[in-house]
Design a protein around this nucleic acid. Structure first.
Length: 583
RNA sequence: GGAGCCGUAGUGCAGUCGGCUUAACACGCCUGCCUGUCACGCAGGAGAUCGCGGGUUCGAGCCCCGUCGGCUCCGCCA
């Protein structure tokens, strides 16, 4: 039904008769002459309907409206002198319509498929199929296709095997909330949709696949964010006989390959490495955005004996005082400072201390410090006249959370973030464990199969490090992985520290522990959030812009109206009953 | 579970201090005119349960309470 793509036509095609099919992007009816911008996936071309060519055709063209699906046969011709459109790729030519076929008409649209208007996202999602007609959205999916294709090509070249793992699988504790699927055949039992193919890919290593990958949907029933959807896609990999640097180098080669193939640019490797500790100290985040400075500066040693009770008492209790220097913001208003303070309090700080440096120090707390202390603070923060200093005193987790967030917010509002930069960063040496106050036990920071750096990690669990690594791009966690435990004794030791009993371990992961009795190879892997990758590469507003049919923050699909109630017959077959009382 | 912002024709929005409009404007839509436009132009027209429910008031799009939905964030996301 078409022999050419609209966007592919150029001067070279002049004189040719072509058949095009697509949508009426815009129509300009001059009464005696009608112009139509015809759009298909490839782009736009102007079609001219002239009654002198065919009166019948022209009359039919008068019926055309936005988004009619049409086929047009016509002659490509060079536009008359002075009538070219430089805004359009095909602007040097136009198609003189000889025959128009209306393949299907369209109702008036619920919203304009126009970049200029910022349409409410609820309306866009309800009519997602129309939203997806917008070229800028289609571009995201073209990119997404190119990336997955390149990833497959690269991993194939590196000797990886793509293997599918089950979607209906076993619910495992430790981790995100599962999406459950009731079993009809086995009353009272449930499958879980995978949070990741973690255990299966480890089993594939036991099977001797050596290099596995999969581009696969994963499901986590947790609350949504602009970079989080309940179902998302991972590029999941696992390799045998590797150490951390083998995997990191492979991933660096992969990104070099991707950028070369998609953007024809060369990116620098190796990517910088930063320990978790350093990331937290300097940026207050385990996924630092290193595209700009404003780093967190430790002032604890300078202020341990200062006259400000809030500070010295916090320090005595094992806390710290840190600050950031906000360049050129000494003219911040009381309102702006109050807003920053409110944000700090929402994140758990008791307060936010500020100092405006305007020739002299303007600050409600300045009177508590000696001139030497003030001089030391400003010097260490490398503050100059005209700067604003923000200080937080608290336990180190809170200090990091508050200043890390203030840094990001201020970096954004002050325009300090260079948008064209692509700053990859490996964050390494993650802690193995983390104390969970609610559960009153240690939890695995990564997951309970992650190998510790030292075999005697149980002697000082709080400070044990893991063979785990995250790849961060521009402050977004793109992916993470680890070297796994393949030694049964080590695994048992870790379960013990995690407070998982032998019986529980047997019940939950028995199949894995069993498998590890049959010569498991040393192995490790990594997984990337594909949606996040595309989101960053496409510089899209939200992750929803790179997912064809995304869900709202309430995890609802406005297009299909899923989830929905089901018949009592369906529930009965599944041996389940809803506890929700219809009002 | 919690916090914030938003909700007015199909779309984007204005609506001031609660009483001046018959809820304005732009795009879109419909009708007519228009042979070189490209965000075509011109003339006319239709189109609003002001998210929903309750309250305050002589009077509510506007104030209060609740509720629903969208977005952003905290918690959560091994």
């Amino acid at each position: 039904m078409k022999d050419r793509d609209c966007g592919s036509l150029s001067k070279k095609d002049a004189g040719q008769v072509v058949i095009l099919s697509g949508w009426v992007h815009r129509r300009r009816d001059h009464g005696g002459l009608i112009f139509v911008d015809l759009r298909d996936r490839s782009g736009l071309v102007q079609v001219v309907f002239d009654p002198d060519t065919s009166k019948e055709n022209f009359n039919l063209a008068e019926k055309l409206r936005s988004e009619f699906c049409v086929q047009i046969q016509g002659e490509v011709s060079i536009r008359p002198e002075g009538l070219e459109n430089n805004e359009l790729k095909t602007g040097e030519i136009e198609v003189k319509a000889q025959k128009l076929t209306i393949l299907s008409p369209s109702q008036a649209l619920p919203f304009a498929l126009d970049t200029r208007s910022d349409v409410d996202e609820a309306v866009r999602l309800k009519y997602r199929y129309l939203d997806l007609r917008r070229p800028e959205l289609q571009q995201n999916f073209i990119l997404r296709h190119q990336v997955t294709k390149a990833v497959r090509d690269f991993l194939d070249k590196e000797g990886f095997l793509e293997v599918e793992t089950p979607m209906l699988t076993k619910s495992t504790p430790e981790g995100a909330r599962d999406y459950l699927v009731p079993s009809r055949v086995n009353p009272g039992t449930f499958f879980a949709l995978p949070q990741s193919p973690q255990l299966f890919k480890q089993l594939l290593m036991v099977s001797g696949f050596e290099k596995y990958f999969q581009i696969v949907k994963c499901f986590r029933d947790e609350d949504l964010r602009k970079d989080r959807q309940p179902e998302f896609t991972q590029i999941d990999m696992e390799m045998s006989f590797v150490e951390e640097q083998d995997i990191q180098q492979l991933i660096e080669r992969m990104f070099v390959y991707l950028f070369e193939r998609i953007y024809a640019i060369k990116i620098d490797t190796p990517f910088p490495r930063m320990t978790y500790q350093e990331a937290m100290n300097r940026y207050g985040s385990d996924k630092p955005d290193t595209r700009f400075g404003m780093e967190l500066v430790d002032l604890t040693d300078l202020l341990a004996d200062c006259g400000f009770k809030v500070f010295n008492e916090t320090i005595k209790k094992g806390g710290q005082v840190k600050g950031i220097c906000v360049k050129g913001c000494a003219d911040y208003t009381r309102k702006q400072l109050d807003d920053l303070t409110t944000l700090a309090q929402e994140l758990g700080a008791k307060g936010l201390a500020w100092m405006l440096i305007k020739d002299e120090i303007k600050s409600p707390i300045a009177k508590f410090f000696t001139d030497t202390e003030i001089a030391n603070i400003t010097q260490r923060l490398q503050a100059q006249n005209g700067d604003l200093l923000l200080l937080v005193a608290d336990q180190k987790e809170t200090v990091a959370a508050v200043l890390g967030r203030l840094r990001l917010d201020l970096g954004e509002t002050l325009g300090l973030i260079p948008k064209d930069k692509m700053n990859f960063l490996w964050v390494v040496d993650f802690p193995l464990l983390e104390w969970d106050k609610d559960e009153n036990r240690y939890m695995a920071v990564h997951h309970p199969f992650t190998a510790p750096k030292e075999e005697n990690f149980d002697e000082d669990p709080a400070n044990a490090l893991a063979k785990a690594y995250d790849l961060v791009l521009n402050g977004v966690e793109l992916g993470g992985g680890s070297i796994r435990i393949h030694d049964a004794n080590l695994q048992t030791k870790l379960f013990k520290v995690l407070g998982i009993s032998e019986e529980e371990a047997e019940e939950k992961f028995g199949f894995l522990l069993q498998a590890f009795k049959f010569g498991p190879p040393p192995h490790g892997g990594i997984a990337f959030g594909l949606d996040r990758m595309i989101w960053l590469l496409a510089k899209a507003e939200s992750i929803r812009d790179v997912i064809a049919f995304p869900k709202t923050q309430k995890a609802i699909c406005l297009l299909t109206e899923a989830p929905s109630t089901v018949s009592s017959k369906q529930l009965k077959e599944l041996h389940i009953a809803s506890t929700v009382v219809k009002s």
